[in-house]
């Protein structure tokens, strides 16, 4: 009887383990952003861009604006390296657009990357939007360990907070397509 109980315990630990190892699933349209708490940027300009008043933790839905573009990347991923200039052009196009500037924000999350590594990636590619480390893969696990690069567009602001409107994996689409999509989402809301 005691042996039977022990094997029940083994079974319970086994059942619980996958939940601990990978808490989330790959995000899809209609899902809510979850498990993405990050440290507020040290750089006051980056905090101002995101509309965060002070240091400490924040959730992406705390960011001011109406839409958020999130890039899940790694400094060690050759595809992310190749895409970095394209993603930079997207940020510049958003900032140059009267309709999108201030309404659409961008962040990047470096999965498995330390602060040092994210900072190196930022400097190497002259990335202007805020990047955050996810050194211990906590966010990566909450996102179902998506392959990189992975892109998410979600709502932010007072209504429909953190609702995912679109996701995309791999290479970025042509800039115009992405901009049209952002403009379209803004008009619908």
């Amino acid at each position: 009887m005691k042996t039977l109980c022990l094997w029940w315990m083994v079974a319970l630990v086994m059942l619980a383990a996958p939940g601990m190892a990978s808490e989330g699933k790959v995000p899809a349209t209609g899902d809510l952003l979850v498990g993405m708490r990050m440290d507020s940027p040290e750089d006051p300009d980056k905090r101002a861009y995101l509309g965060l008043e002070d240091r400490g933790n924040f959730d992406p839905t705390d960011i001011t604006g109406r839409l958020l573009v999130i890039e899940i990347f790694s400094m060690y991923c050759p595809h992310c390296q190749r895409e970095a200039p394209v993603v930079n052009r997207l940020y510049q196009a958003i900032e140059a657009s009267k309709a999108l500037r201030g309404q659409v924000k961008m962040i990047g999350i470096g999965v498995g990357n330390s602060t040092y590594e994210v900072d190196h990636f930022r400097k190497h590619y002259k990335i202007e939007f805020p990047l955050f480390p996810d050194e211990d893969f906590v966010i990566h696990k909450s996102l179902g360990e998506v392959r990189t690069p992975f892109f998410i567009i979600s709502t932010i602001g007072s209504d429909n907070k953190g609702k995912i409107l679109w996701t995309g994996a791999g290479n970025m689409e042509p800039l115009e397509t992405f901009m049209d999509r952002l403009n379209g989402f803004l008009k619908k809301r």
Binding site: L6, M9, M14, P18, P78, H79, G112, E145
Partner: peptide, 28 residues
């Protein structure tokens, strides 16, 4: 017996974690 069973369970439960170390790139 309890210790052995728990160690065994712990070792098996760690197996899925190596997924986080896999190369991230799409095609490779």
């Amino acid at each position: 017996l309890l210790m052995g069973a728990l160690v065994c369970a712990a070792m098996l439960s760690v197996a899925p974690l190596h997924g986080q170390c896999l190369a991230q790139e799409q095609t490779i």
